[in-house]
């Protein structure tokens, strides 16, 4: 009993110490968000000398007359739509790749993998031309619509891998009971894949939240700025950068991600009863 407790204390001490090292850069940023612009660069102290909320005030004022709350709202909206799209479309494709027999299975799977391998920057120009032809520039459509068509190969691959791990016997019983393939997918496969679906949901959220390059390219009007685009506006190498506001808003923008992770990791990691999958 006591040995166990000692072990446990050692575990916590080590994990906290190590965690602190990992987090040091972020803690530095959190502290910097309470410092004035001068102190961020001049000061040597970790803690702010005269903590100020000024950075948060100026950060929330946002860009071009739009408050930062709007950008947070925009990012949330975009992320929510992308999550729905990715989960719906990627799970269908993954189910087909993982559990269904068809002649082109291997070939199409390879095609899917190859689409992951072409660098983003050369796809960008042709994609832009296509979206421009559809009149979608400066809307969220180029960022959201493709998600409904399983364009994120990473997630198909992840779910395929996940679904392959689910025993076929679990799907055989409902088939014998006369369920259609669609019903098996909907009522058995999806619930069994819940942790996998949660994973891609959370990843989608984080990636959408952090992706700056395509959002910067496709969105122009500040009214539609997302968090990642707005954050880049705080730093300009040719003028006066508001680092304090950048740090403050970076901290703010981490809050939803952090909360989401804490709130959903139960489903993400522990959502499935041990032994429930493999017989």
């Amino acid at each position: 009993m006591t040995k166990r407790r000692v072990n446990s204390i050692i575990f916590h001490v080590l994990i906290i110490l190590f965690g602190f090292t990992m987090l040091y850069p972020l803690l530095w940023m959190l502290m910097a968000s309470f410092k004035t612009n001068q102190e961020i660069f001049a000061g040597v102290n970790f803690f702010p000398e005269n903590p100020t909320l000024g950075n948060y005030a100026s950060g929330f004022k946002g860009v071009s007359g739009y408050s930062f709350f709007r950008f947070i709202g925009n990012s949330f909206l975009l992320a929510a739509v992308c999550i729905v799209g990715n989960i719906a479309s990627c799970s269908m494709a993954a189910f087909a790749f993982a559990k269904l027999d068809f002649r082109l299975n291997k070939f199409l799977f390879s095609v899917m993998m190859v689409t992951l391998m072409l660098p983003f920057h050369v796809r960008l120009i042709p994609q832009y031309i296509v979206f421009n032809g559809m009149g979608w520039i400066d809307t969220f459509l180029p960022l959201a619509v493709p998600k409904f068509f399983a364009t994120e190969g990473f997630f198909i691959f992840l779910l395929t891998q996940y679904m392959r791990g689910i025993s076929n016997e679990l799907l055989e019983a409902p088939r014998i009971d006369g369920c259609s393939t669609w019903q098996i997918f909907l009522y058995f496969m999806l619930p069994l894949s819940l942790p996998g679906l949660m994973t891609i949901g959370i990843f989608t959220f984080i990636w959408t939240w952090n992706d700056f390059f395509s959002q910067m390219i496709y969105i122009s009007n500040p009214i539609r700025f997302t968090v990642s685009v707005a954050l880049r506006m705080f730093v300009d190498t040719t003028g006066q950068s508001t680092w304090g506001a950048l740090f403050a808003m970076s901290c703010v923008s981490l809050v939803p991600l952090f909360a989401l992770f804490i709130g959903f990791q139960r489903y993400l990691i522990e959502g499935i009863a041990a032994g429930g999958i493999k017989g």
Partner: peptide, 14 residues
């Protein structure tokens, strides 16, 4: 969550 935080940070300018 704490160990995951750095990844949440992505490629931010910060």
């Amino acid at each position: 969550a704490v160990y995951y935080l750095p990844s949440l940070f992505g490629g931010s300018v910060a």
